[in-house]
Deep mutational scan, measured.
Amino acid sequence: QEEEKEIKRLAKKFNASEEEARRAWKKAGGDPETAEKILKKKG
């Protein structure tokens, strides 16, 4: 599933848990760029 792959990639890229990545993904409405910004800010 595309979403799961994206979440795993985000978690790995930002050294975050999949739970954090999933939360960022949901907050971003499934937009990878926005999710990255959220995780970057958090990191």
Score class of each variant (00 low, 15 high):
residue 1 Q to I: 13
residue 1 Q to F: 14
residue 1 Q to H: 11
residue 1 Q to Y: 12
residue 1 Q to E: 12
residue 1 Q to L: 13
residue 2 E to W: 15
residue 2 E to L: 10
residue 2 E to P: 08
residue 2 E to T: 10
residue 3 E to Q: 09
residue 3 E to R: 07
residue 3 E to P: 06
residue 3 E to S: 09
residue 3 E to V: 10
residue 3 E to K: 06
residue 3 E to T: 10
residue 3 E to N: 09
residue 4 E to P: 03
residue 4 E to H: 07
residue 4 E to D: 11
residue 4 E to M: 10
residue 4 E to F: 07
residue 4 E to G: 06
residue 4 E to L: 09
residue 4 E to C: 10
residue 5 K to E: 13
residue 5 K to L: 14
residue 5 K to R: 13
residue 5 K to I: 12
residue 5 K to C: 13
residue 5 K to W: 12
residue 5 K to T: 11
residue 5 K to G: 08
residue 6 E to V: 09
residue 6 E to W: 15
residue 6 E to F: 11
residue 6 E to A: 12
residue 6 E to D: 05
residue 6 E to R: 06
residue 6 E to K: 06
residue 7 I to E: 01
residue 7 I to A: 02
residue 7 I to L: 04
residue 7 I to Y: 03
residue 7 I to N: 01
residue 7 I to K: 01
residue 8 K to Q: 12
residue 8 K to S: 09
residue 8 K to L: 12
residue 8 K to G: 05
residue 8 K to D: 05
residue 8 K to I: 10
residue 8 K to H: 08
residue 9 R to W: 06
residue 9 R to Y: 06
residue 9 R to Q: 06
residue 9 R to I: 06
residue 9 R to P: 01
residue 9 R to M: 07
residue 9 R to F: 06
residue 10 L to P: 01
residue 10 L to M: 05
residue 10 L to N: 00
residue 10 L to A: 01
residue 10 L to G: 00
residue 10 L to E: 00
residue 10 L to D: 00
residue 10 L to H: 00
residue 11 A to M: 15
residue 11 A to S: 06
residue 12 K to S: 09
residue 12 K to G: 05
residue 12 K to P: 00
residue 12 K to E: 08
residue 12 K to L: 13
residue 12 K to T: 08
residue 12 K to F: 09
residue 12 K to D: 07
residue 12 K to C: 14
residue 13 K to C: 07
residue 13 K to A: 07
residue 13 K to V: 06
residue 13 K to I: 07
residue 13 K to W: 06
residue 13 K to G: 02
residue 13 K to F: 06
residue 13 K to M: 13
residue 14 F to E: 02
residue 14 F to D: 00
residue 14 F to T: 03
residue 14 F to G: 02
residue 14 F to M: 09
residue 14 F to I: 02
residue 15 N to F: 07
residue 15 N to Y: 06
residue 15 N to I: 03
residue 15 N to V: 04
residue 15 N to E: 05
residue 15 N to A: 08
residue 16 A to H: 04
residue 16 A to W: 03
residue 16 A to I: 15
residue 16 A to C: 15
residue 16 A to S: 08
residue 16 A to E: 04
residue 16 A to K: 08
residue 16 A to T: 15
residue 16 A to V: 15
residue 16 A to N: 03
residue 17 S to R: 04
residue 18 E to T: 08
residue 18 E to Q: 08
residue 18 E to H: 07
residue 18 E to W: 10
residue 18 E to L: 15
residue 18 E to G: 03
residue 18 E to M: 14
residue 19 E to I: 06
residue 19 E to C: 10
residue 19 E to T: 06
residue 19 E to L: 06
residue 19 E to D: 12
residue 19 E to K: 06
residue 19 E to H: 06
residue 20 E to H: 04
residue 20 E to F: 04
residue 20 E to D: 10
residue 20 E to W: 06
residue 20 E to G: 02
residue 20 E to N: 04
residue 20 E to V: 07
residue 21 A to L: 02
residue 21 A to S: 04
residue 21 A to M: 03
residue 21 A to W: 02
residue 21 A to H: 00
residue 22 R to Y: 09
residue 22 R to E: 06
residue 22 R to M: 07
residue 22 R to N: 03
residue 22 R to A: 07
residue 22 R to W: 10
residue 22 R to S: 05
residue 22 R to K: 08
residue 22 R to D: 03
residue 22 R to T: 06
residue 22 R to C: 09
residue 23 R to P: 01
residue 23 R to D: 15
residue 23 R to E: 15
residue 23 R to I: 12
residue 23 R to T: 10
residue 23 R to A: 15
residue 24 A to L: 02
residue 24 A to Q: 02
residue 24 A to R: 01
residue 24 A to I: 04
residue 24 A to E: 01
residue 24 A to K: 01
residue 25 W to V: 03
residue 25 W to S: 02
residue 25 W to T: 02
residue 25 W to H: 03
residue 25 W to I: 05
residue 25 W to Q: 02
residue 26 K to R: 14
residue 26 K to P: 01
residue 26 K to E: 15
residue 26 K to G: 09
residue 27 K to G: 07
residue 27 K to L: 15
residue 27 K to Y: 10
residue 27 K to S: 11
residue 27 K to E: 15
residue 27 K to H: 10
residue 27 K to R: 07
residue 27 K to N: 10
residue 27 K to T: 12
residue 28 A to C: 04
residue 28 A to R: 01
residue 28 A to L: 00
residue 28 A to K: 00
residue 28 A to H: 01
residue 29 G to K: 11
residue 29 G to C: 15
residue 29 G to S: 06
residue 29 G to Q: 10
residue 29 G to I: 04
residue 29 G to H: 10
residue 30 G to A: 06
residue 30 G to L: 03
residue 30 G to D: 02
residue 30 G to R: 05
residue 31 D to F: 03
residue 31 D to I: 08
residue 31 D to M: 04
residue 31 D to Q: 05
residue 31 D to V: 08
residue 32 P to T: 11
residue 32 P to K: 10
residue 32 P to W: 13
residue 32 P to F: 11
residue 32 P to E: 05
residue 33 E to Y: 13
residue 33 E to P: 06
residue 33 E to M: 12
residue 33 E to R: 11
residue 33 E to H: 10
residue 34 T to W: 11
residue 34 T to V: 14
residue 34 T to I: 15
residue 34 T to R: 13
residue 34 T to P: 01
residue 34 T to F: 10
residue 34 T to L: 15
residue 35 A to R: 01
residue 35 A to M: 06
residue 35 A to L: 04
residue 35 A to I: 06
residue 35 A to S: 03
residue 36 E to L: 04
residue 36 E to C: 07
residue 36 E to Y: 05
residue 36 E to H: 05
residue 36 E to D: 04
residue 37 K to Q: 11
residue 37 K to H: 09
residue 38 I to L: 11
residue 38 I to E: 05
residue 38 I to Q: 03
residue 38 I to A: 03
residue 38 I to Y: 10
residue 38 I to M: 07
residue 38 I to T: 03
residue 38 I to K: 02
residue 38 I to D: 03
residue 38 I to S: 03
residue 39 L to M: 09
residue 39 L to I: 04
residue 39 L to N: 00
residue 40 K to I: 10
residue 40 K to Y: 12
residue 40 K to N: 12
residue 40 K to V: 08
residue 40 K to W: 13
residue 40 K to T: 11
residue 40 K to R: 14
residue 41 K to M: 15
residue 41 K to W: 15
residue 41 K to Q: 13
residue 41 K to F: 15
residue 41 K to L: 15
residue 42 K to Y: 14
residue 42 K to V: 13
residue 42 K to A: 13
residue 42 K to C: 14
residue 42 K to I: 14
residue 42 K to T: 13
residue 42 K to S: 15
residue 42 K to G: 14
residue 42 K to M: 15
residue 43 G to K: 13
residue 43 G to M: 15
residue 43 G to D: 10
residue 43 G to S: 12
residue 43 G to A: 12
